[in-house]
Amino acid sequence: MHGVKRRQWNQELLEQKKLNDAKNINNYRRLTSTILGLKEKKEYSLDNLQKSKELLKINPEFNAVWNFRRDSIIALKEQLEAKFWEEELDFVMAELKIYPKVYWIWGHRVWVLNNYPGSPVSIWKRELLIVSKLLELDARNYHGWHYRRIVISSIENRTGESMDKEEFEYSSNKINNNISNFSAWHQRANMIPAMFANNEIEDKKKFIDDELKYITNAMYTDAEDQSVWIYIKWFLNSDIVSNTYTTEEYVKMIDDVKQNILIINQDDLDFSGKENAWCLKMLIVIEEISKRFGSQEECRTQEYVKKLIEIDPLRKNRYLHLRNKT
Protein backbone atom coordinates (compact mmCIF):
# COMPACT_ATOMS: atom_id res chain seq x y z
CA MET A 1 0.00 0.00 0.00
CA HIS A 2 1.44 3.31 -0.98
CA GLY A 3 0.52 6.65 0.52
CA VAL A 4 -2.46 5.44 2.59
CA LYS A 5 -2.70 7.13 5.99
CA ARG A 6 -2.75 4.81 9.01
CA ARG A 7 -6.20 4.92 10.57
CA GLN A 8 -7.23 4.48 14.15
CA TRP A 9 -10.28 2.23 14.29
CA ASN A 10 -12.76 2.63 17.13
CA GLN A 11 -15.36 0.00 17.91
CA GLU A 12 -18.12 1.76 16.00
CA LEU A 13 -16.07 2.21 12.85
CA LEU A 14 -14.96 -1.41 13.03
CA GLU A 15 -18.55 -2.65 13.26
CA GLN A 16 -19.49 -0.49 10.30
CA LYS A 17 -16.56 -1.76 8.25
CA LYS A 18 -17.40 -5.36 9.09
CA LEU A 19 -20.94 -4.92 7.81
CA ASN A 20 -19.81 -3.26 4.60
CA ASP A 21 -17.04 -5.76 4.06
CA ALA A 22 -19.35 -8.75 4.51
CA LYS A 23 -21.61 -7.46 1.76
CA ASN A 24 -18.72 -6.64 -0.57
CA ILE A 25 -16.98 -9.95 0.05
CA ASN A 26 -20.10 -11.87 -0.78
CA ASN A 27 -20.62 -10.11 -4.08
CA TYR A 28 -16.93 -10.21 -5.00
CA ARG A 29 -16.48 -13.90 -4.26
CA ARG A 30 -19.62 -14.79 -6.17
CA LEU A 31 -18.44 -12.84 -9.22
CA THR A 32 -14.91 -14.23 -8.96
CA SER A 33 -16.11 -17.76 -8.77
CA THR A 34 -18.42 -17.24 -11.76
CA ILE A 35 -15.71 -15.68 -13.93
CA LEU A 36 -12.99 -18.17 -13.01
CA GLY A 37 -15.48 -20.96 -13.75
CA LEU A 38 -16.26 -19.51 -17.18
CA LYS A 39 -12.57 -19.03 -17.79
CA GLU A 40 -11.80 -22.64 -16.98
CA LYS A 41 -14.50 -23.82 -19.36
CA LYS A 42 -13.42 -21.27 -21.99
CA GLU A 43 -16.95 -19.93 -22.27
CA TYR A 44 -16.51 -16.81 -24.31
CA SER A 45 -19.58 -14.64 -24.98
CA LEU A 46 -20.60 -11.01 -25.05
CA ASP A 47 -22.50 -11.57 -21.82
CA ASN A 48 -19.45 -12.96 -20.11
CA LEU A 49 -17.37 -10.09 -21.38
CA GLN A 50 -19.78 -7.80 -19.57
CA LYS A 51 -19.48 -9.83 -16.38
CA SER A 52 -15.69 -9.67 -16.44
CA LYS A 53 -15.97 -5.91 -16.73
CA GLU A 54 -17.97 -5.77 -13.49
CA LEU A 55 -15.28 -7.71 -11.68
CA LEU A 56 -12.45 -5.62 -13.09
CA LYS A 57 -14.19 -2.47 -11.95
CA ILE A 58 -13.99 -3.79 -8.41
CA ASN A 59 -10.45 -5.16 -8.75
CA PRO A 60 -8.46 -3.81 -11.71
CA GLU A 61 -5.39 -5.77 -10.58
CA PHE A 62 -7.01 -9.12 -11.25
CA ASN A 63 -4.70 -10.18 -14.06
CA ALA A 64 -6.36 -13.52 -14.74
CA VAL A 65 -9.60 -11.68 -15.48
CA TRP A 66 -7.90 -9.32 -17.93
CA ASN A 67 -6.53 -12.49 -19.55
CA PHE A 68 -10.03 -13.97 -19.73
CA ARG A 69 -11.19 -10.75 -21.31
CA ARG A 70 -8.46 -10.85 -23.95
CA ASP A 71 -9.07 -14.52 -24.71
CA SER A 72 -12.78 -13.72 -25.04
CA ILE A 73 -12.10 -10.85 -27.41
CA ILE A 74 -9.86 -13.05 -29.57
CA ALA A 75 -12.52 -15.76 -29.70
CA LEU A 76 -15.34 -13.33 -30.49
CA LYS A 77 -13.38 -11.10 -32.84
CA GLU A 78 -15.57 -11.80 -35.86
CA GLN A 79 -18.75 -10.91 -33.95
CA LEU A 80 -17.51 -7.68 -32.43
CA GLU A 81 -18.84 -4.47 -33.90
CA ALA A 82 -16.58 -1.51 -34.57
CA LYS A 83 -18.00 0.32 -31.57
CA PHE A 84 -16.87 -2.48 -29.26
CA TRP A 85 -13.26 -1.37 -29.62
CA GLU A 86 -14.11 2.22 -28.81
CA GLU A 87 -16.10 1.12 -25.78
CA GLU A 88 -13.22 -1.04 -24.64
CA LEU A 89 -10.85 1.93 -24.86
CA ASP A 90 -13.34 4.07 -22.93
CA PHE A 91 -13.60 1.43 -20.23
CA VAL A 92 -9.83 1.16 -19.91
CA MET A 93 -9.49 4.93 -19.77
CA ALA A 94 -12.07 5.20 -17.00
CA GLU A 95 -10.05 2.62 -15.03
CA LEU A 96 -6.76 4.40 -15.70
CA LYS A 97 -8.15 7.64 -14.38
CA ILE A 98 -8.97 5.97 -11.07
CA TYR A 99 -5.91 3.70 -10.98
CA PRO A 100 -3.13 5.43 -12.94
CA LYS A 101 -0.43 3.18 -11.49
CA VAL A 102 -1.80 -0.29 -12.18
CA TYR A 103 0.45 -2.10 -14.66
CA TRP A 104 -2.28 -4.48 -15.87
CA ILE A 105 -4.56 -1.67 -17.08
CA TRP A 106 -1.82 0.02 -19.09
CA GLY A 107 -0.85 -3.39 -20.50
CA HIS A 108 -4.41 -4.07 -21.54
CA ARG A 109 -4.66 -0.72 -23.30
CA VAL A 110 -1.57 -1.47 -25.39
CA TRP A 111 -3.01 -4.87 -26.22
CA VAL A 112 -6.35 -3.38 -27.29
CA LEU A 113 -4.67 -0.84 -29.56
CA ASN A 114 -2.49 -3.51 -31.14
CA ASN A 115 -5.51 -5.73 -31.75
CA TYR A 116 -7.88 -2.97 -32.84
CA PRO A 117 -9.01 -3.83 -36.38
CA GLY A 118 -6.21 -2.64 -38.63
CA SER A 119 -4.55 -0.81 -35.71
CA PRO A 120 -4.46 2.34 -37.88
CA VAL A 121 -2.14 5.27 -37.23
CA SER A 122 -5.17 7.47 -36.47
CA ILE A 123 -5.95 5.67 -33.21
CA TRP A 124 -2.33 5.91 -32.13
CA LYS A 125 -2.23 9.63 -32.89
CA ARG A 126 -5.36 10.10 -30.83
CA GLU A 127 -3.62 8.10 -28.11
CA LEU A 128 -0.76 10.57 -28.09
CA LEU A 129 -3.18 13.37 -27.24
CA ILE A 130 -4.70 11.23 -24.51
CA VAL A 131 -1.40 10.33 -22.89
CA SER A 132 -0.38 14.00 -23.02
CA LYS A 133 -3.54 14.79 -21.05
CA LEU A 134 -2.71 12.08 -18.52
CA LEU A 135 0.79 13.46 -18.11
CA GLU A 136 -0.76 16.80 -17.33
CA LEU A 137 -2.46 15.22 -14.32
CA ASP A 138 0.75 13.57 -13.12
CA ALA A 139 3.81 14.78 -14.98
CA ARG A 140 6.05 12.09 -13.45
CA ASN A 141 3.85 9.01 -13.93
CA TYR A 142 6.36 6.28 -14.78
CA HIS A 143 3.73 4.21 -16.58
CA GLY A 144 2.51 7.24 -18.50
CA TRP A 145 5.95 8.07 -19.89
CA HIS A 146 6.60 4.44 -20.74
CA TYR A 147 3.25 4.31 -22.51
CA ARG A 148 4.03 7.53 -24.36
CA ARG A 149 7.19 5.96 -25.81
CA ILE A 150 5.20 2.92 -26.93
CA VAL A 151 2.69 5.21 -28.66
CA ILE A 152 5.43 7.26 -30.33
CA SER A 153 7.19 4.19 -31.62
CA SER A 154 3.89 2.80 -32.98
CA ILE A 155 3.24 6.04 -34.85
CA GLU A 156 6.79 6.12 -36.20
CA ASN A 157 6.52 2.53 -37.37
CA ARG A 158 3.30 3.28 -39.20
CA THR A 159 4.31 6.58 -40.81
CA GLY A 160 8.00 5.88 -41.29
CA GLU A 161 8.71 9.36 -39.95
CA SER A 162 10.74 10.22 -36.89
CA MET A 163 9.05 12.13 -34.09
CA ASP A 164 12.28 12.97 -32.27
CA LYS A 165 11.87 16.70 -32.83
CA GLU A 166 8.31 16.75 -31.49
CA GLU A 167 9.40 14.77 -28.46
CA PHE A 168 12.32 17.09 -27.89
CA GLU A 169 9.92 20.03 -27.92
CA TYR A 170 7.53 18.17 -25.65
CA SER A 171 10.36 17.75 -23.15
CA SER A 172 11.01 21.51 -23.28
CA ASN A 173 7.34 22.20 -22.51
CA LYS A 174 7.32 19.80 -19.59
CA ILE A 175 10.56 21.24 -18.18
CA ASN A 176 9.32 24.80 -18.63
CA ASN A 177 6.27 23.85 -16.56
CA ASN A 178 8.37 22.25 -13.86
CA ILE A 179 12.11 22.28 -13.93
CA SER A 180 12.28 19.33 -11.50
CA ASN A 181 10.55 17.01 -13.94
CA PHE A 182 13.36 14.53 -14.40
CA SER A 183 11.17 12.31 -16.59
CA ALA A 184 11.25 15.12 -19.14
CA TRP A 185 15.01 15.67 -18.78
CA HIS A 186 15.44 11.94 -19.33
CA GLN A 187 13.39 12.09 -22.52
CA ARG A 188 15.45 15.08 -23.69
CA ALA A 189 18.74 13.28 -23.09
CA ASN A 190 17.50 10.44 -25.27
CA MET A 191 16.09 12.63 -28.04
CA ILE A 192 19.17 14.77 -28.65
CA PRO A 193 21.56 11.92 -29.55
CA ALA A 194 18.79 10.38 -31.69
CA MET A 195 18.31 13.67 -33.55
CA PHE A 196 22.06 13.94 -34.12
CA ALA A 197 22.33 10.33 -35.26
CA ASN A 198 19.43 10.72 -37.71
CA ASN A 199 20.69 14.02 -39.09
CA GLU A 200 17.62 15.88 -37.95
CA ILE A 201 19.46 19.04 -36.96
CA GLU A 202 20.53 21.54 -39.58
CA ASP A 203 22.95 23.68 -37.62
CA LYS A 204 24.49 21.43 -35.02
CA LYS A 205 26.72 24.05 -33.49
CA LYS A 206 23.83 26.45 -33.02
CA PHE A 207 21.82 23.64 -31.47
CA ILE A 208 24.53 22.98 -28.88
CA ASP A 209 24.92 26.73 -28.22
CA ASP A 210 21.18 26.99 -27.59
CA GLU A 211 21.10 23.93 -25.36
CA LEU A 212 23.94 25.40 -23.34
CA LYS A 213 21.95 28.59 -22.83
CA TYR A 214 18.95 26.50 -21.83
CA ILE A 215 20.81 24.57 -19.15
CA THR A 216 22.64 27.62 -17.89
CA ASN A 217 19.29 29.26 -17.36
CA ALA A 218 18.06 26.07 -15.67
CA MET A 219 20.91 25.92 -13.18
CA TYR A 220 20.29 29.51 -12.15
CA THR A 221 16.55 28.79 -11.83
CA ASP A 222 16.90 25.98 -9.31
CA ALA A 223 20.40 25.22 -8.15
CA GLU A 224 19.15 22.80 -5.48
CA ASP A 225 17.49 20.48 -7.93
CA GLN A 226 19.36 17.32 -8.83
CA SER A 227 17.33 16.76 -12.03
CA VAL A 228 19.01 19.69 -13.71
CA TRP A 229 22.50 18.74 -12.52
CA ILE A 230 22.17 15.10 -13.59
CA TYR A 231 21.27 16.34 -17.06
CA ILE A 232 24.11 18.84 -17.16
CA LYS A 233 26.57 16.16 -16.07
CA TRP A 234 25.44 14.07 -19.04
CA PHE A 235 25.50 16.99 -21.47
CA LEU A 236 29.01 18.14 -20.61
CA ASN A 237 30.40 14.63 -21.06
CA SER A 238 28.35 13.80 -24.11
CA ASP A 239 29.85 12.83 -27.47
CA ILE A 240 27.45 15.05 -29.33
CA VAL A 241 29.02 18.11 -27.71
CA SER A 242 32.64 17.02 -28.03
CA ASN A 243 32.08 15.95 -31.65
CA THR A 244 30.36 19.19 -32.62
CA TYR A 245 32.61 21.74 -30.94
CA THR A 246 36.25 22.22 -31.76
CA THR A 247 38.55 21.48 -28.84
CA GLU A 248 38.94 25.18 -28.28
CA GLU A 249 35.18 25.73 -28.19
CA TYR A 250 34.72 22.74 -25.93
CA VAL A 251 37.32 23.92 -23.43
CA LYS A 252 35.77 27.38 -23.43
CA MET A 253 32.31 25.93 -22.84
CA ILE A 254 33.55 23.91 -19.87
CA ASP A 255 35.18 26.99 -18.43
CA ASP A 256 32.02 29.09 -18.90
CA VAL A 257 29.93 26.49 -17.12
CA LYS A 258 32.50 26.37 -14.35
CA GLN A 259 32.41 30.14 -13.89
CA ASN A 260 28.61 30.06 -13.67
CA ILE A 261 28.70 27.30 -11.10
CA LEU A 262 31.22 29.25 -9.03
CA ILE A 263 28.90 32.27 -9.11
CA ILE A 264 25.87 30.20 -8.05
CA ASN A 265 27.87 28.59 -5.27
CA GLN A 266 29.09 31.96 -4.03
CA ASP A 267 25.51 33.30 -4.09
CA ASP A 268 24.39 30.37 -1.96
CA LEU A 269 27.24 30.95 0.45
CA ASP A 270 26.42 34.65 0.74
CA PHE A 271 22.73 33.96 1.12
CA SER A 272 22.62 30.92 3.41
CA GLY A 273 26.13 30.69 4.77
CA LYS A 274 26.48 27.27 3.15
CA GLU A 275 28.00 26.19 -0.12
CA ASN A 276 25.85 24.33 -2.62
CA ALA A 277 26.58 20.58 -2.58
CA TRP A 278 25.60 20.05 -6.21
CA CYS A 279 27.84 22.92 -7.31
CA LEU A 280 30.77 21.27 -5.56
CA LYS A 281 29.95 17.86 -7.02
CA MET A 282 29.79 19.38 -10.50
CA LEU A 283 33.07 21.21 -10.00
CA ILE A 284 34.69 17.83 -9.37
CA VAL A 285 33.17 16.48 -12.58
CA ILE A 286 34.42 19.54 -14.47
CA GLU A 287 37.93 19.11 -13.13
CA GLU A 288 37.93 15.54 -14.41
CA ILE A 289 36.95 16.77 -17.88
CA SER A 290 39.52 19.59 -17.81
CA LYS A 291 42.22 17.14 -16.83
CA ARG A 292 41.44 15.07 -19.92
CA PHE A 293 42.07 18.21 -21.97
CA GLY A 294 45.41 18.82 -20.31
CA SER A 295 44.32 21.71 -18.11
CA GLN A 296 47.20 23.18 -16.15
CA GLU A 297 44.95 24.71 -13.53
CA GLU A 298 45.49 23.73 -9.93
CA CYS A 299 43.33 20.75 -8.96
CA ARG A 300 40.93 21.60 -6.15
CA THR A 301 39.03 18.31 -5.95
CA GLN A 302 40.47 17.48 -2.51
CA GLU A 303 39.19 20.78 -1.19
CA TYR A 304 35.72 20.25 -2.68
CA VAL A 305 35.59 16.74 -1.24
CA LYS A 306 36.46 18.02 2.21
CA LYS A 307 33.65 20.54 2.05
CA LEU A 308 31.19 17.98 0.72
CA ILE A 309 31.87 15.61 3.61
CA GLU A 310 30.83 18.45 5.88
CA ILE A 311 27.76 19.78 4.08
CA ASP A 312 26.44 16.50 2.67
CA PRO A 313 27.30 13.93 5.35
CA LEU A 314 24.75 11.36 4.11
CA ARG A 315 27.07 10.55 1.24
CA LYS A 316 30.29 10.89 3.20
CA ASN A 317 31.68 7.52 2.14
CA ARG A 318 31.35 8.31 -1.54
CA TYR A 319 33.33 11.48 -1.00
CA LEU A 320 35.99 9.59 0.94
CA HIS A 321 36.17 7.21 -1.98
CA LEU A 322 36.67 10.16 -4.37
CA ARG A 323 39.37 11.56 -2.11
CA ASN A 324 41.29 8.30 -2.16
CA LYS A 325 40.86 7.97 -5.89
CA THR A 326 42.41 11.32 -6.83
Binding site: N20, D21, N24, I25, Y28, R29, T32, I58, N59, E61, F62, N63, A64
Partner: peptide
Protein backbone atom coordinates in the same frame (compact mmCIF):
# COMPACT_ATOMS: atom_id res chain seq x y z
CA UNK B 1 -11.73 -7.99 5.62
CA UNK B 2 -12.62 -7.15 2.03
CA UNK B 3 -8.95 -6.35 1.39
CA UNK B 4 -8.04 -9.98 2.06
CA UNK B 5 -10.08 -11.09 -0.95
CA UNK B 6 -9.09 -8.15 -3.11
CA UNK B 7 -5.45 -9.22 -2.78
CA UNK B 8 -5.85 -12.82 -3.94
CA UNK B 9 -4.08 -11.96 -7.17
Amino acid sequence: DFEYWLSEH
